[in-house]
Design a binder for these strands. Sequence first.
RNA 1: GCGCCAGUAGCUCAAUAGGAUAGAGCGUUGGCCUCCGGAGCCAAAGGUUGUGGGUUCGAUUCCCGCCUGGCGCACCA
Length: 550
Amino acid sequence: MKPQIYVRTRLENALRALGIDPIDPILLNLDKPKQDGFGDLAITSAMSLARDLRQPPRKIAEKLLQLLDLDQFYIEKAEIAGPGFINLYLAKSCLQRAVLEILDERDTFGSDDWGKGIRVQFEFVSANPTGPLNIVSARAAAIGDVLAALHEKVGFVVEREYYVNDAGRQVNLLGASLDVRYRAELGTAGEIPEGGYHGAYLIDLAKAILEEYGSSLAELPDQERRERLGRLALDAMLAKHRASLDKYRLNYDRWFHETRLRQQSEHLNVLKVLQDKGLIYEDEGATWFRSTQFGDEKDRVLVTSEGEPTYFLIDIAYHQNKYQRGFAVLHDLWGPDHHGYIDRMRAAIQALGYAADSFRVHIIQQVNLFRGGQVVKMSKRAGEIIEMDELIEEVGVDAARYFFVDRRLSQPLDFDIDLAKKKSDENPVYYIQYAHARISNVLRYAEEQGFNSAMAADLSVLTNDAEMELIKKCLEFPQVVSKAAQFIEPHRLPNYLYELANVFHRFYHDNRVVSDDGALTQARLLLIQATRQVIKNGLTLMQITAPENM
RNA sequence: GCGCCAGUAGCUCAAUAGGAUAGAGCGUUGGCCUCCGGAGCCAAAGGUUGUGGGUUCGAUUCCCGCCUGGCGCACCA
């Protein structure tokens, strides 16, 4: 058993003995004190309980400490400090054994089961197939993927989904825009329609189509030609998106097409359900949904006076479809320009009879691109966008994923292209990967020197501070994973891995692993193997490579 | 005008669920390779956490006001 789990279990028992039901997770929170000299784990329950129990926190702490009845194998020293902290010092015996526990658990170290197999879905990127994926999508892709991986790690059953907006007005515009490019290739001048797409990628596509189909499409009637070109553009764009994401090491479980919803009239079904609940009314020729009944600031149109379903209606149908597929929680990752959309969507979800908190939207803030110290204004109209493919090519998948996950979602991200391009050692991802490669190299060296790194060892020879620090750091990993998933704060993971690499590099600098002392060498080989395992498990969650050498 | 997000060291960010003396990287200054990878390690300097109140044993964190910046407030998607 790992020490955190041991202490938590003891704490639960102690609280019950005090007549307190330890339901509130805050009572069970075990913090690692920020400051040195306050032990390895701090219990804050006494202070949390002080008001309810109407007793001084230090007095409660004393009682708790007695009831904890901690085993010396795990806790070498426990003391009450400050206003009522109980500071615990981990015993070397349990830390030494933890090395073996980590090695036994291998890839599964850091896993948990509190997700209890609940099915959750993450829908992210879902960019309109009217242009190449840009740098904002790259951020969403990295974050969505790692959030999904984190949830899998803590016991949820997870699906990653990409919603394809392949119907509606924008597809018509895409076809019309491509039509202009296509005819331009044939020598007929035309103007990109209002709201159409100006990007250069459509010129390339027009050339490719000309090559494949020649001028045959030009003979079709206008409407038919545009539809045909719209389809071709869509297919080409989707293939491009898939290729980009594939390069990014991101695999979706499902690509869900909007056309499917329309073909099966699922939006009409939604209308009927809402109608039956009396949540629909007609006004000025349009059909409205009483979203204000569920906290939205105003009612919303579902069918326009022209008889067209709005995007909102289709989107409601889409979310209903997700629920019907059995997901208990829907995680949607949206851009900041959609935050005004959350209330109405949640209103619809409640109207359909699903719990408001089963629908979780995570807003990913924008990416500001810097080049030469200047903000690059991105404009689709001017065709100035940085494509995801360019980014991957320039900085590599590892660095890109790291940078995007390294900040909390609510924080706008400044991405300095020049710096990222440098591909220099300033890049923290190299620091972490270097630790992994360094360990691998030491293990190779040890084998050459006749040591067998798979051999058992007496770990009680691991006693110095650097060794203990390293083990403690490794043991933090499961909690980092849990909290990153629980609070949707994936940036905790790269931050932690950086710290772990730092502790390892310090250990390495001061302690020779392969030495004349055979017993100590064997023990340290296991220690660095365990460290490497943790680094690898962390990098794997982010789909960043863990190189054996660099 | 209303709403959402943000404001922490020169710059980019942390601060683990309200905890103890607010920490890292980059940059600046100065040290460390006879040795398993120097893509590394150590140290110094750098802060009124935008601002004014409140809640409490304790606030960067929670509440209210104000300031600054970004975004949103369609019968568009």
